[in-house]
Simulated scan of single mutants.
Amino acid sequence: MSDRAETLPEFPAWPQYDDAERTALIRALEQGQWWRMGGNEVNSFEEEFARANGADYALAVTNGTHALELALQILGVGPGTEVIVPAFTFISSSQAAQRLGATAVPVDVTPDTYCLDIAATEAALTDRTRAIMPVHMAGHLTDMDALGKLAGDAGVAVVQDAAHAQLAEWRGTKVGALGSVAAFSFQNGKLMTAGEGGAVTFPDNDTYQEAFLRHSCGRPKTDRRYFHQTSGSNFRLNEFSAAVLRAQLDRLPGQVATREERAPLLASLLADIPGVEPQARDERVTLNPHYMAMFRIPGITEEKRNTLVDDLIARGLPAFVAFRAIYRSDGFWETGAPDLTVDDLARACPVTEAITADCVWLHHRTLLGTEDDMHTIARIVRAAVAEL
């Protein structure tokens, strides 16, 4: 039987939902208060999400981009400051800084985990650097030991872009307990979702309190007379989204456990395919929630990679091209870009340049399949790669 004719796994649909979400939505509806200041869902979700991720405090917000923007703002990012970001990431990582008037400084990533390169980060530090933003790519945590030392020695804040990393752990410590602010996304494709949504976790009460003010137009919880204590915007999450997210959070640990079982098997099978290199794993990452199953085919052209993704989709796999280097999008250059050219940044970020062309990812719902499904996925990838 050919691979094109092979019976495909019935991967779970995404998003996943059942009566838990239905019940939650009705609960939010019938409480009669649909915004966070009068209802119970957002407050309850924040407590549950903080606890699940080891954080002292969590603040639910409208989306992951706003989560990053708010996190940077409370740490003093603004005009005249710089934020170091990976060149290989979704563009929200840089735009969150740029929208605050800061300059986003892209640096290269490692060729195996696709996370922030610490040596490149150190080389990019200046007296204007206010924050470093590691992106935990596909759920794999950045080297938080080296980054923590670098940031501590330089007196620079760390803002974790944990959009892919709900429940992740470094050396047994949960992502929200690593001593820095972390921002999460609940967009439709993320590991838990309400269509949109986000959260920020905090290691201390002071930053949480300031973030609360700024996410609610500068207005304290108890204000009835419009005394706005800071500038801000309306980043408040609604009660319906929070109710759905509570159900999604309950389901998440079981899903993560399944993906942790399947991912090593799939990675080993993919690694046996000539030319294919799956994303590596640092042994200090003691829990990876696996936002995506990523692999590279070093040396392939971007055109052939795109053809491969189309072929995988045609064969029934939910495949995607990886992110483009942020400096290769026009939106990056609109405001808050460094005084460099695309070519300058490309020379400084050779790994990102390669990954832009040769990296593929498979939707994380594939990792919720059976062990047999992992073998089927690998056979399909092998056949598609062989036809390049």
Rank of each mutant, 00 (worst) to 15 (best):
35 W>V: 15
357 A>E: 13
341 T>Y: 07
211 A>W: 03
59 L>H: 08
159 V>C: 01
56 D>K: 15
274 P>R: 05
170 W>M: 00
286 T>I: 00
69 E>G: 05
103 T>A: 05
32 G>A: 15
230 T>Q: 08
257 A>M: 10
20 A>V: 08
344 D>Y: 04
270 L>C: 01
189 G>I: 08
33 Q>I: 04
28 A>I: 13
303 E>D: 10
368 L>W: 07
25 L>P: 05
365 R>N: 13
87 A>Q: 05
135 V>N: 01
312 L>M: 06
65 T>F: 09
88 F>S: 08
45 F>W: 15
361 W>S: 05
172 G>E: 07
212 F>A: 11
7 T>K: 13
378 A>N: 11
56 D>F: 04
144 M>A: 01
109 V>W: 09
169 E>N: 03
225 R>H: 12
2 S>F: 07
23 T>F: 08
143 D>S: 04
304 K>C: 00
382 R>T: 10
241 S>Y: 13
86 P>T: 06
304 K>F: 00
241 S>C: 13
4 R>N: 10
219 R>Q: 09
159 V>M: 02
117 D>K: 05
388 L>G: 00
171 R>A: 02
48 E>F: 07
153 D>P: 00
310 D>P: 00
333 W>G: 14
31 Q>H: 12
85 V>W: 04
343 D>C: 02
103 T>H: 11
9 P>H: 06
63 N>D: 11
115 C>T: 15
172 G>V: 05
149 K>C: 03
112 D>M: 10
311 D>H: 13
193 T>Q: 06
314 A>L: 12
297 I>V: 13
91 I>M: 03
297 I>L: 13
232 G>I: 02
241 S>R: 10
80 G>R: 02
295 F>A: 02
133 M>H: 00
234 N>S: 10
380 I>H: 07
345 L>W: 05
35 W>H: 14
355 I>D: 03
46 E>K: 09
123 A>K: 12
351 V>A: 10
48 E>W: 04
340 L>F: 06
197 G>T: 08
242 A>P: 14
251 R>D: 15
228 H>Q: 06
33 Q>N: 15
205 N>H: 14
329 S>W: 07
28 A>D: 15
222 T>A: 12
323 F>Y: 14
189 G>A: 05
141 L>H: 03
327 Y>I: 09
333 W>K: 13
337 A>E: 10
178 L>C: 01
304 K>T: 05
234 N>D: 15
233 S>D: 11
14 W>M: 00
242 A>E: 14
144 M>T: 00
100 L>D: 08
227 F>L: 11
91 I>H: 05
204 D>G: 15
255 Q>W: 03
121 T>W: 04
256 V>E: 05
113 T>E: 14
275 G>E: 01
58 A>Q: 06
88 F>E: 06
72 L>G: 03
121 T>D: 06
387 E>F: 00
339 D>K: 08
29 L>G: 10
70 L>T: 03
379 R>V: 02
207 T>V: 04
101 G>S: 09
26 I>R: 14
90 F>N: 03
249 L>K: 09
68 L>T: 01
47 E>H: 10
330 D>E: 15
285 V>H: 01
17 Y>H: 13
13 A>P: 02
68 L>A: 03
237 L>E: 15
118 I>M: 01
276 V>Q: 09
203 P>S: 05
46 E>D: 12
188 N>C: 01
63 N>W: 07
330 D>S: 13
213 L>N: 06
16 Q>E: 12
